[in-house]
Simulated assay, not measured.
Amino acid sequence: MNDVLEYLLTAPIAEAAPADLDQAWARHAALTEPFRSPVDRAIAGGFAADRLGFAFLSGYQEALRQLLPEVAGAELIAVSATEEGGAHPAAIRTVLEPAGDGWIVRGTKTFTTIGEYARWLVVVAATGAVVDGRHQLRAVLVEAGQPGVTVTNRPPLPMAPEIPHATVLFEDAVARPLPGDGYADFLKPFRTVEDVHVLAATLGWLVRVGRTAGWPQPELQRLLAAVAMVRGLDLDRPDSPGVHIALGGIFAEFARLLEQSEPLWQQTDAVTRDRWERDRALLATAGRVRAKRLETAWRRVAAAAE
């Protein structure tokens, strides 16, 4: 079956809980194989997840596959961008340098999601060039298991502790540059693409919760309507003001949906309900940045209309 809406309503619900992140990803890979688009795989992967953290994993991975189809595969990938001063171009101190016939990276990334489990790291590094007052960045692909890469786990976060984060030290690690500008063509659009796919996976997971707990049909209808809205976004143009404005509307509808469904959580089992209360803050972590992108999108629309 490759109709993801029908799949959400009729597919069997896997009951066995994954033992760890690797098992959660293996389940995602097995159950989402029939679906062609990354957003549909994120939705189906969220439905396969037994908790919000593993739904996030599905969305995060499929966002990378949407933006970087050339690195798509069965192995886990992680974005390694954030440094001590953040992930803005001016804060990037990790450097990319030529070495023989190839390239190497050197520096420290302070917050790499699933760093411990990733086979490949997409590292954002500075080239040393400055154009129009801005550091030029490249996104490069680095194999995590090579000798020049040291991954050190950070303490688990209070929310979604199943998803680890790490500090990663690069010491002349061999790297393969990816096409385009590391900020404009990767890091900036990735934040939007990630928002879309994580929301898609969350909605898939909520359908699973609702079906398991016997939520009423009107609630499942609202969830599927939100899924359809997410699927309708044009992710070939993630920098479009229209995409940001539409996504802002979808998030507003999603917030209302969560508020309306609040009483229904009393019908869910205690473990699922307690995890939801623990992990729901995960959905708000990018809210401030998303609000700024929405303001910028409206300003761009206003400027174009003048």
Rank of each mutant, 00 (worst) to 15 (best):
A42P: 02
E75M: 08
A291M: 12
I163F: 08
D50G: 06
A303E: 14
A270F: 11
E33P: 06
R27D: 08
T152Y: 05
A270W: 10
R275L: 06
H244P: 08
F190Y: 05
V4Q: 02
W205R: 07
T150P: 04
R288Q: 14
A305I: 09
G214K: 05
E277A: 12
G59R: 00
T296P: 09
V207G: 00
V105R: 02
V142E: 00
G128E: 06
V174W: 06
P216R: 05
D269G: 09
L141R: 08
Q221L: 13
R208K: 09
A42I: 02
V79A: 09
S37Q: 12
R299Q: 14
L157W: 07
V39Y: 01
V271H: 08
A91Y: 07
A213N: 04
Q136D: 12
P155G: 03
P218H: 10
R237F: 13
V209Q: 07
L52C: 04
T32I: 07
D239T: 11
I13K: 14
A87F: 14
A305G: 11
G287Y: 10
M229W: 11
L282D: 02
G232Q: 08
R300W: 09
E262S: 13
T212D: 13
P147H: 03
A74K: 13
V142F: 00
Q146V: 03
A91M: 08
T212H: 14
A72D: 09
R27E: 13
G46A: 03
W103F: 07
R278Y: 03
D20F: 05
R299Y: 11
T202M: 06
T285L: 14
A19E: 15
I13L: 15
D195T: 05
A42N: 02
L224G: 05
A26F: 04
L203C: 03
A305S: 14
V301S: 06
D132L: 12
E15F: 13
I43T: 00
R106G: 10
E171F: 10
R41Y: 01
W25S: 02
R288A: 15
E62H: 07
H135A: 13
L52K: 00
A129L: 14
K292D: 11
P38T: 04
D22A: 15
G59P: 01
A49W: 00
A48Q: 04
Q217Y: 13
V142C: 06
P161V: 06
A173S: 02
R293W: 05
R300S: 10
A29W: 11
A270K: 10
L187R: 05
R41A: 03
R93G: 14
P158F: 04
P263V: 06
L137P: 00
V71C: 07
G53T: 01
T212R: 15
L141G: 04
A11T: 04
S80I: 07
H88T: 10
P147W: 02
L178S: 09
V271L: 11
G46W: 01
A302T: 12
D274M: 13
T192H: 06
S58V: 02
L206R: 02
W103T: 06
P238S: 09
A225K: 13
G204W: 02
A160Q: 10
G100N: 08
E15N: 13
D101G: 14
A48Y: 01
A139T: 03
A29G: 11
Q260M: 12
G248K: 03
R300I: 05
T167Q: 11
A99F: 07
V131C: 10
L141Y: 06
D132R: 13
